[in-house]
């Protein structure tokens, strides 16, 4: 199959179409395999129609009309200009885009904005401001839990959410028991934070910042 020119050409069309609509892409692939038309141009994807969506972001109701392909991440960054939430990979591999939806952290790059109708979203801008830092933000500054700063908003949103997960008794891969209440130990926090990559390597300092806040909350 990789050697078949017909398929490889039509696959381009499939890939292009798949961004717009999985249903159309599947139809295109089926048609291509049946007819194997080497010269057939890909079916033009219909222009996606904007969809309305209403989000509550950092306490403020935001009504948007969005291309349905828009991720929650791009809705925040490009449409609401809340650029504190970062795009590091756009594939759920780095954690820089971490925000809290209804109090639970998610990778906002892996979620379409229109899936969040009516949701309450907290971003880094909603935690604190330079003049009034959230305790976790202040702990990151104190312990130098960042360097270039690009993964930092995601780290902080994750850190806040992780301590809440532990408080709520949500177990992790390293929890000794699934039923006992997990504790905010170094290894427990490091395990839960492992979806947030910091290439500058501030991990040791982030762990100290989190330990300070976990201790205060304990």
């Amino acid at each position: 199959m990789p050697n078949s020119p017909e398929i490889s050409i039509s696959r381009r069309g499939v890939l292009a179409g798949s961004a717009a609509s999985a249903v159309i892409a599947a139809t295109t692939a089926g048609a291509a395999q049946r007819a194997a038309p080497a010269t057939l141009a890909p079916l033009p994807a219909p222009a996606p129609q904007p969809m309305p969506v209403s989000l509550t972001v950092n306490g403020k109701v935001q009504r948007l009309s969005l291309d349905p392909r828009t991720t929650l991440l791009d809705a925040l960054r490009e449409h609401l200009h809340l650029t504190g939430t970062k795009k590091g990979c756009d594939h759920g591999q780095c954690g820089a885009c971490t925000v809290m939806v209804e109090g639970v952290r998610i990778n906002s790059c892996l979620s379409l904005a229109v899936m969040h109708e009516g949701d309450t979203i907290t971003t880094i801008e909603g935690l604190g401001t330079p003049d009034k830092l959230h305790p976790m933000q202040a702990a990151f500054v104190k312990h130098d839990g960042y360097q270039c700063g690009y993964c930092t908003p995601g780290q902080i949103c994750s850190a806040v959410a992780v301590l809440d997960e532990i408080k709520r008794g949500v177990p992790s891969h390293v929890s000794v028991s699934l039923t006992d209440h997990p504790q905010a130990t170094n290894i427990e926090m490091r395990e839960r934070m492992s979806g947030n990559i910091c290439r500058c390597g501030a991990y040791s300092n982030i762990a100290e910042a989190m330990a300070e806040i976990a201790g205060e909350n304990a």
């Binding site: 809340l82 650029t83 504190g84 604190g128 401001t129 330079p130 990151f140």
Partner: peptide, 9 residues
């Protein structure tokens, strides 16, 4: 630059 970086500003 800590306050700006930790608040997304």
């Amino acid at each position: 630059d800590g306050p700006a970086k930790t608040t997304g500003m």
